[in-house]
């Protein structure tokens, strides 16, 4: 046990036979069901919550598929009309030499969602297997996922702004495609998946005889 000097003295609420409120931090006896201060439901640290994580995760993944297959934007100009998927839009930006915006869109709608799926799956699978030494890194990963997930919504807003603004009759007009809705749903579902992951699981460490 004595490998990690910093960890030895840390006692958790669970060790002490208590339960801490994840919303406001208040501590209650273990049998309490509702936090008396903020009214949030008190959850014990156990694996049952992972089911919800996986359910939201899978639903998000399913909606991410049509989000990539269907067109995000439909542009009609004097020359004709054109449909763009997420990847198609990035490719077009690159051909117009707007590398920076292409990078922003690519990161927000491809890199972030995909790495989010991988990161949540990794965190959920690693529960119970991680050594205490790795926990700091896992928590950082979780915080990044939680912080950055909502930024994927940027692409939906871009589509909304473009379709509202670019309405110049016959010259050029832009309309949203079905992928916008699928993508928004996918982002929302993965946000719910990340929110249902209990970060206290990361720290549970090896099985102990107390408080179980």
């Amino acid at each position: 046990m004595g490998r990690n000097r910093a960890e030895v003295t840390i006692q958790t609420a669970r060790d002490a036979g208590l339960v801490g409120c994840t919303r406001c931090g208040k501590v209650w006896p273990q049998q309490t069901h509702e936090c008396g201060r903020c009214g949030a439901t008190l959850k014990r640290v156990d694996n049952a919550g992972l089911q919800a994580v996986w359910a939201w995760w899978l639903a998000g993944l399913i909606f991410y598929i049509p989000a990539n297959l269907y067109p995000m934007l439909r542009t009609s100009t004097l020359a004709g009309s054109q449909q763009n998927t997420i990847i198609g839009g990035v490719v077009e930006l690159v051909t117009h030499h707007s590398y920076f915006v292409a990078a922003v869109v690519f990161v927000a709608s491809v890199v972030i969602p995909v790495s989010k799926f991988i990161a949540i799956a990794y965190l959920a699978l690693a529960v119970g297997n991680e050594r205490r030494a790795g926990s700091h890194r896992h928590l950082h990963l979780f915080e990044v996922v939680e912080f950055i997930g909502r930024w994927s919504m940027v692409d939906v807003f871009v589509v909304a702004i473009l379709s509202a603004l670019v309405q110049l009759g016959a010259v050029v007009s832009i309309h949203p495609g079905p992928a916008a809705a699928a993508f928004a749903l996918s982002v929302a579902l993965t946000m719910l998946s990340a929110q249902s992951f209990d970060p206290r699981l990361i720290w549970r460490g090896p099985a102990r005889t107390t408080g179980s």
Partner: peptide, 14 residues
């Protein structure tokens, strides 16, 4: 006393 304790919402440390 229990009302003076705070549990970290991220890692459960008391």
């Amino acid at each position: 006393p229990i009302d003076q304790l705070i549990a970290c919402p991220k890692c459960d440390a008391l």
